[in-house]
């Protein structure tokens, strides 16, 4: 048997859902372990400390996955260390690849965030008006430190060189399986690209009229929120007036949201060749709205369009982060 591939997993500013997508391989995880060895998986799964990673030789890890966005100086530091230790570095999941939902935090500045969290909520008790401090001497003798909070959310590729991206929030376990197979067999796309089947959600969606013989797609004649009426189960949601990001989103999920009669919101990331997901989404959806009345309806139904179209990708966009 060929030598096992050494894998590393590192969670930065994320939710560990990406790591759960590996656990969700279920019994196939046991088979996977025949081909791979876990060299580092922290903090979620293994008892390895940051020192252990720092003490490893450079390039000791064959493939490293980093999930989560970059918000703290510690994230930057650890990302740089992992870059040195890994031959191949993968931005795993939409936070790492595009910033993720937490990337919407960049629409607000740090002071605004801290003031709300640590002073102005109905349950907050802060008699001295203190904020968490990078350095703090408690009771005059206990010297404690916290990582520094940075002004904006960044994606992994804005901090270190990334070899591949994988989209999804988190990636579907079937896609994880395909990606690991690609890694084990060395069948990888050109560096810098997404590991994806390259199809859009619409391409794999059973509702798509183009996939149904004899049907054509028509323009959106109205815009509805998902609380407006009940969508028909088998019909394209766009045709019914429900904004769905299926046309511009990677479909490695198998159009999973559509299975439960709910529109896609773009967690899979952009199709190959697209740099700015949100801008692409705005122009794609804009181009299928029937007329100006429908355009006005979109703005009325979704008053904050940047949070709508850039739900998972704001830090990767060219849009100014705070107006």
């Amino acid at each position: 048997m060929a030598e096992k591939i050494k894998l590393g997993f590192l969670l930065l500013g994320g939710c560990a859902g990406c790591e759960m997508s590996v656990v969700d391989l279920s019994e196939k995880l046991v088979d996977t372990l025949e081909h791979v060895e876990i060299a580092f998986w922290a903090p979620t799964v293994a008892d390895v400390k940051y020192d252990d990673l720092e003490n490893m030789e450079d390039n000791a890890i064959d493939v490293a996955f980093i999930d989560g966005m970059i918000r703290l100086d510690e994230h930057v530091h650890m990302a740089k260390i992992m870059r040195k230790k890994a031959k191949i570095l993968i931005a795993y999941g939409v936070c790492s690849a595009l910033g993720g939902t937490a990337g919407l935090g960049s629409l607000h500045d740090k002071e605004e965030l801290f003031e709300k969290a640590f002073k102005n909520t109905p349950t907050t008790d802060n008699p001295d008006g203190v904020y968490p401090q990078p350095e703090c001497l408690v009771d005059g003798k206990y010297d404690l430190t916290l990582p520094k909070y940075q002004d904006k959310v960044r994606l992994l590729g804005q901090v270190v060189d990334v070899d591949y991206n994988i989209g999804g929030c988190p990636p579907h376990y079937s896609h994880v399986e395909a990606a690991i197979t690609a890694l084990v067999t060395g069948q990888l796309p050109p560096k810098g690209s997404y590991i994806t089947n390259g199809k859009a959600v619409c391409d794999v969606c059973e509702r798509n009229p183009v996939n149904k013989e004899g049907d054509n797609r028509t323009m959106m004649y109205r815009v509805l929120r998902t609380v407006d009426g009940v969508p028909e189960n088998d019909t394209c949601l766009l045709l019914q007036g429900y904004v769905c990001f299926g046309p511009m989103t990677q479909g490695d999920c198998g159009a999973s949201c559509l299975h439960v009669n709910t529109p896609c919101r773009g967690c899979g990331g952009p199709l190959p060749g697209v740099e700015d997901y949100g801008a692409q989404a705005i122009s794609s959806i804009g181009s299928i709205l029937k007329d100006e009345t429908v355009t006005a309806q979109l703005k009325e139904k979704y008053p904050n369009l940047s949070k709508f179209f850039y739900r998972y990708s704001l830090p990767s966009g060219i849009l100014p982060k705070k107006m």
Partner: peptide, 12 residues
Amino acid sequence: VEFRGFEKFLVG
């Protein structure tokens, strides 16, 4: 040692 900032951006 982390802090993200969720509820703020749910507004809107």
